[in-house]
Amino acid sequence: MPIGVIINSLAVFLGGLIGALLGDKIPERARASLPLTSGVASMAMGVSLILKMNAMPAVVLSLILGSAIGEFTKFESGIEWCVHRIRRPIEKIFSNKGTVDNQKEFMEKFVGIVILFCASGTGIFGALKEGMTGDHSILITKAFLDLFTAGIFAAALGYIVLTICVPQFVVLICLFFSASIILPMTTPAMVADFSACGGMIMLATGFRISGIKAFPIANMLPALILVMPISYLWTALVK
């Protein structure tokens, strides 16, 4: 039973719903400053994961190749297209449209939090661990953070934030059921490099959410698929 996956996705839904309902009642200063706090938290989590790195060349190569694949396939543009398609119907259903009207600013923040919720190293590893051992403590801990983070961003972006629970659930449930296949094929070094790669993406996500630099973080996601095989090959052939 994927208890952690369900609780984590429900936390995003509830956080997004509560944040959107209270959006107009939250002072403008708080709506502007709280996302910055989430950005810093994302950067701190990213740094903590990067410190677990085993083979830097393997991680860097994975990021370069993964980003090239993402740019070539225009992965982030596809996500933005999907967001644009679902934003209008949601704004028609709900009166609260959020406080961010600029389309470019909206997309930068929304794509950033999609990656933060759906592709964080903590979520991916937590889903794999629960699928393999039944231990859902990592995902439940993450659910508390996601509850408040979703609420913070929903206050600015509106009800569309609660829809993130759908792709998040799909990603985590797929990892949960594939854990028995993936984890036995990994080594501690491969997991460490995978976490470091996810940490770099989370660091870039923090910069993007904070409005410092709009990294194309969605285009970096293919690196998460490449990093474990490249880490294995690097360790076997070079070290």
Rank of each mutant, 00 (worst) to 15 (best):
I182M: 01
R85T: 09
G134D: 12
S210E: 01
L224R: 00
S77G: 10
I124G: 04
Q103P: 15
N54P: 01
E91W: 06
L224K: 02
I64V: 15
G66R: 02
E80M: 13
I182S: 03
I140P: 01
D135N: 13
S33R: 10
V59R: 04
Q103M: 12
T122L: 14
P222N: 06
M202G: 02
E80A: 11
S95A: 12
M220S: 05
S77Q: 13
W81T: 13
I26L: 12
A143Y: 04
I140E: 10
M190D: 04
A155W: 07
A179P: 05
I182L: 09
A223R: 00
C82R: 12
I115P: 05
A154H: 12
I69V: 15
R87I: 12
G211R: 01
I124S: 07
I217Y: 01
W81A: 14
L175I: 03
T205S: 10
M202W: 00
I164A: 09
F72V: 12
V100Y: 12
T133N: 07
L175H: 03
I201A: 07
M190L: 02
T187V: 03
L237P: 00
M107N: 14
Y232N: 01
G134I: 08
L147M: 10
M185G: 02
I50E: 05
F148L: 15
I181V: 13
I90M: 15
L183N: 04
I160E: 06
L22Y: 08
P184Q: 03
S67H: 13
G15E: 08
V47A: 15
L22M: 14
K129D: 08
L157E: 11
A150L: 12
K52G: 10
L147A: 05
F13M: 10
L162K: 05
V238G: 03
L237M: 10
I212S: 00
W234P: 06
F207Y: 08
S178Y: 12
R29V: 13
V5L: 03
L175M: 09
I173T: 11
